[in-house]
Design a protein around this nucleic acid. Structure first.
Lengths: 335, 335
DNA sequence: TTGTAAGCGTTATCAA
DNA sequence: TTGATAACGCTTACAA
């Protein structure tokens, strides 16, 4: 049977409360007893039972994670999974555990806020969500500290990648290689990040005064490789084909490259391509795709630090956005 | 402030214990009061605080999940993530919540078993693990009900895909299309599943008495597309190239196909290819790869059902393997 | 500096 | 059929 704090206290001839204070680093205790207790605790492997701790204490050392409104998407999304992973590692190092917030607890349907109260979480991370979901709105405006790595809202601190910087890095590359004849292909701009990347592209294009040529920007119909393929065909049929294409999504780039190749263009000697995202498969693609990497590890860690800050300093939620830098990885579709 | 069971009791002029019994469906209660309480509980949204429940009750309605020994891999693995997702959905429907088991709780290093005791989990799922890890061995041989979707051990019930059936489906295809000139490419057979697939391949090949030709089986050096590419080059240089290749991994198949194409072979008209796994990218690959799908959803759900069975019927762990059927998806690398 | 004792919100046992 | 009451294991005022 597991040792309780009472067992430990008895064995050391102390009161349970003394043990508690020492284990939790609270109150004033003589260095000797502290050392004695710590030593014993260490060797006996005593750890306070978490449910008892949560019940009697204000703090639960637990952070709720809202992963998605649609429970079906769940852990499968590689990008957000990776963020979650680094978030988790960081908060665990700091003594917190994470739990997934769902709108069901046992057999009971409940709001996210109810859930947070029921579990007494210390804070919540919205790793992916929908700003119109009443459940989300409620938590964000509650007293719980909340940080997001996806949505932006009033009273919400968001940690995301710097989309403008990504496009800037693409331009830097073009400038460095002195390529002037380049264009961009973006996914549907209903997506915030696509819209932002496109915006920055247009801004820089004008800023540097490049020639728009036949057409310097294409927007796909969808998010898939197929929609990339379709645009690739269009581009292949141009009078003058660009030397370099920025594609704001790796998946779209895969299709686009195939189309270009089918029309006889060689990548990168005829046309260079830079993708965006660095998804898992990007490096296996042939030719390995040069792309903009989002530092998912940094997003997770930063979000964790910020959230723990709110929790530990007891600050109120605020509308803020923290940008994480991105990088260009040059692989085989550039030269 | 959240309502407690005492609030509910007061408001209904009943004892807390009565409420508890009703909410948990225990003891004998008159139909009238039961209805009255249930109605009130429903409308007021009362849900018992989980930590208090866990503290006072034997059952915790919590299942611990061991995802990986290396915390870094974590949620990123698409295959296991998907299993976890369906497992989670199922047990949540049945009233359980899942928590990740790590070897650290707060700042304390601890064994998986300690962890399970500390959290009083009702059972554990090993979604991915290492049979040599002492921590794993300990939990498996403990009194906790354990089920795995990866490793096989004494005292452990495992739910995995039927690798032999996968290879059988490949043969069925060849037989149906009356192709006799086919070969297999497998990844390193240090991996259990590769070994099993290879074994079944050899068995069936002999069973049907096919001609081994130049060489009917290739083993790659690694798990990557590159190692597939290398084998692809070897195959392309054969005197007589096969009509159909079974590749026991999609990732390896991607590289292999590229190599074949670079040597001028057309897929599928010259050579057909069937992969294995149906990873995310498989359908975006050009040409979309025909492959063997493992029904990850079924794995998760089945594992969940089995584990809850052990928990609720209080049975001891046993060495058993439950196989989940697989399927062949025909896409563009077969015809 | 240490100890006592009262909670935290449930469930479980036993009595009414 | 319902209700008191004692756990569950811990934290936290407050007292010593």
């Amino acid at each position: 049977m597991k040792k309780t704090i009472i067992d430990v206290a008895k064995e050391l001839n102390l009161a349970p409360s003394t043990i508690s204070k020492i284990v939790n680093n609270k109150g004033r205790i003589s260095p000797e007893t502290r050392a004695r207790v710590l030593k014993y605790v260490e060797s006996s492997g005593y750890v306070a039972m978490s449910s008892a701790r949560k019940l009697s204490s204000k703090k639960s050392w637990t952070i709720g994670v809202i992963y998605s409104d649609i429970s079906l998407v769940g852990f499968e999304h590689p990008f957000f999974s990776r963020i979650l992973q680094s978030f988790k590692s960081y908060v665990e190092k700091m003594g917190y555990e994470i739990v997934m917030i769902v709108s069901k607890l046992g057999k009971n349907e409940m709001t996210y806020l109810d859930w947070c109260q029921n579990k007494k979480v210390d804070g919540v991370l919205i790793i992916m969500g929908n700003i119109n979901n009443p459940n989300i709105i409620q938590v964000v405006n509650s007293d719980f500290p909340v940080v997001s790595t996806d949505i932006q809202m009033k009273n919400l601190h968001t940690v995301i990648c710097d989309d403008r910087m990504g496009v800037q890095k693409m331009f830097e590359y073009a400038l460095k290689k002195q390529i002037e004849n380049f264009i961009a292909v973006t996914g549907p701009i209903t997506s915030r990040s696509f819209a932002e990347r496109m915006h920055e592209f247009n801004r820089l294009f004008d800023f540097y005064g490049f020639d728009k040529g036949e057409q310097n920007l294409y927007i796909t119909n969808g998010f898939s490789s197929d929609s990339g393929y379709a645009i690739g065909e269009e581009i292949a049929k141009r009078k003058k084909v660009p030397k370099l294409i920025f594609v704001f999504s790796d998946v779209i780039a895969f299709g686009l490259i195939r189309a270009l190749e089918h029309h006889g263009y060689k990548i990168p000697s005829d046309i260079q391509v830079i993708g965006y995202d660095d998804i898992d498969f990007t490096k296996y693609f042939v030719p390995a795709l040069s792309t903009i990497v989002q530092d998912t590890k940094a997003i997770g860690t930063t979000a964790a630090k910020i959230l723990l800050g709110y929790i530990e300093e007891n600050r109120n939620n605020e509308h803020k956005v923290t940008y994480i830098p991105v990088d260009l990885i040059e692989r085989d579709t550039t030269e």
